[in-house]
Design a protein around this nucleic acid. Structure first.
Lengths: 360, 360
DNA sequence: GTGAAAGCGCTAACAT
DNA sequence: ATGTTAGCGCTTTCAC
């Protein structure tokens, strides 16, 4: 016997839905719905009564029901590869802040670089009827991507742009920050600059490397093949990169890294090799994650704001036709860079740096 | 004109719902539903046909509709204070992994220590009809808490246990790890051990401080009032703590911190003061967030597994009656601790430590 | 074992 | 401006 005594409304008590409110306020459910959705045509007096009833009863509208009938889930998905990479939390926070601001909820899926988990993620997003997905990871496998795009769900990627409709791309101007970094090193006197890159399958990593190549070429610096090491955007990769670079006949005097985690691994390896930063070797990271400020020495790095990217992503998802804003990057100079060892001005520079850092 | 020509099913094409599948498989919607939900009583032959139809059409069940009728949203909420504290991502990842494993989705709300945002969080969770909320932040204001608990939504807290039904608590055995840390320092010869605590309103911070007091008392160590500094679980707090402690007449030879971010701030401040860790002063953190391993020197810390906590939280939410498992903590010795400066064995220990770290 | 049909709580025509 | 009512896509009795 399912038929609840909806008509015999005298016994109303247990369920707290829009009807209960309507009854308490002495109006119809339609009016309550209008009040909740702030439809302007409702009489202010009635609206007030409705709000009071809502307040008194502690009524909360059921999102599931609203979504079902309206067709809007008010849900946005983000797919990332590895939440423990400190760049992602900052991105997620930005995304979530922005999403909440425009009345959306965020569904997070982390793939952990696992294809099967990615598949599960896509399935979950589909089932929840997300209204858009930000793919902040490399290599979403085409067939999966297809599933989303065939439903006409807007998507946004970083850098990489599978050219389909409903798919937009957030362009990041890597060139600017990386150019600043290279020129910063060049001005200090560095000529042998190495680069520890990210995974080659990751588009954004490839682009960073290209930006580095372009920036060095621009100022006439030759980068021998051995000076480019392919890491994987983890600290371990940075350690391996340093091991490789230190074994070179011509050791670099400065190392740039494709992301901060790599640079942190590199710092670690350099310290273990008995090398001091920046006296013996200069180091620059990329991302400007929070922690870099607290490394010893504080890391000079290229800032790419996770918040900016997130805001662009949300905007792109909500209005896929709008031209996406380009995200800027810029150099943040801290204390992991200085003149190369053996430079004339070395003694002086080093001494003044020390004075500086002992201050505070 | 809303009335879609559902009866004139010849024109079926656009909408892809359970009816489409039923029709394609030549069964009723009820059967499709049963197949999807793996009700055992369905004929295997029919089930196969249904799965094929699902596959062929690319059908994805609508979670909203299922939730609406079944009353189960399959949604779990987590409320945290600050996602940029590296401890939380690890916790969230654990939570999410566990939740997905049991077929749930995770809704994340970060309050950023802001009451208004907390309010919004609670409202969102209520609207989405979450089936449980893990509150991983201090001081959820009572009235808000009330809103959740009055709906009979299970909640789980860390440490702090507002004694109500439907509310469970994850007990963390802070004592064990902190005791190990204190004894580790004592064995090395430290007698003046300071503590940089967390915010006093945060129950877990208070408990950590108490554990420290108990552990020192146990071995007969007197901790003067000035040796306890109240920070705020941020790096900035750690810096302030060090500034305070270094100004003491009797400087501590070792500092323990209420969390790793505090310890990282402390390292920073100590370096700026020209003090070397662990030669001049030993340092111990708490949490064992990923990055500690890569600090210079790698930080000795007390591990509290975010994954364990998350798993316990999910379990507690799904079965609030089950007795929650206690989460263990334990000391991870790295290289930020050694004998106090001036100790007889100092020279030797220091030298051997250096040899060690130059290895690799 | 399978199908028919009644709603889950809400929004949006449509009618008034 | 407000009320009436038909579904949104699904699960779940109930009858067969």
């Amino acid at each position: 016997m399912k038929k609840r005594a909806r008509s015999t409304s005298r016994t109303a008590s247990k369920r707290l839905d829009i009807r209960t409110v309507a009854q308490a306020a002495g109006v119809s459910v339609a009016t309550v719905s209008r009040v909740i959705n702030k439809v302007p045509s409702v009489d202010p007096g009635l609206a007030k009564k409705v709000w009071e009833a809502i307040q008194k009863l502690g009524y909360v509208p059921n999102t599931q029901a609203r979504a079902l009938v309206s067709g809007h889930s008010k849900l946005l998905g983000v797919i990332i590869s590895d939440i423990t990479n400190p760049f992602f939390p900052e991105l997620i926070q930005g995304f979530e802040d922005k999403a909440v601001e425009v009345g959306y909820e965020t569904l997070i899926g982390s793939t952990n670089y696992d294809l099967q988990r990615m598949e599960l993620c896509v399935q979950r997003m589909l089932e929840r009827k997300v209204e858009g997905v930000a793919v902040m990871t490399f290599g979403i496998e085409e067939p999966l991507l297809e599933r989303l795009s065939s439903q006409g769900i807007p998507m946004v990627f970083i850098d990489l742009a599978p050219k389909k409709k409903d798919i937009s791309t957030i362009r990041v101007d890597y060139q600017k920050g990386i150019r600043e970094a290279v020129q910063h090193l060049a001005v200090l006197g560095h000529r042998r600059i190495a680069f520890i890159a990210g995974p080659q399958r990751l588009h954004s990593a490839v682009t960073r490397l290209e930006a580095f190549r372009a920036a060095t070429r621009e100022i006439g610096l030759k980068i021998p093949a051995g000076s480019i090491f392919h890491g994987d955007h983890t600290a371990e990769g940075g350690e391996r990169g340093v091991a490789h670079l230190l074994a070179l006949k011509e050791r670099p005097t400065a190392i740039m890294c494709s992301n901060d985690m790599t640079a942190i691994g590199a710092m670690h390896a350099l310290a273990h090799a008995g090398l001091s930063i920046p006296r013996d070797i200069s180091l620059i990271g990329f991302d400007d994650i929070r922690i870099t400020e607290y490394m010893l020495p504080p890391l000079t790095t290229v800032r790419m704001s996770g918040g900016d990217i997130a805001a662009s992503a949300v905007a792109a998802l909500l209005d896929p036709s709008a031209p996406p804003k380009e995200v800027e990057t810029r150099l943040i100079v801290r204390q992991s860079t200085s003149v190369p060892a053996g430079t004339l001005s070395d003694l002086h520079a080093d001494a003044s740096r020390k004075r500086l850092s002992r201050k505070s």
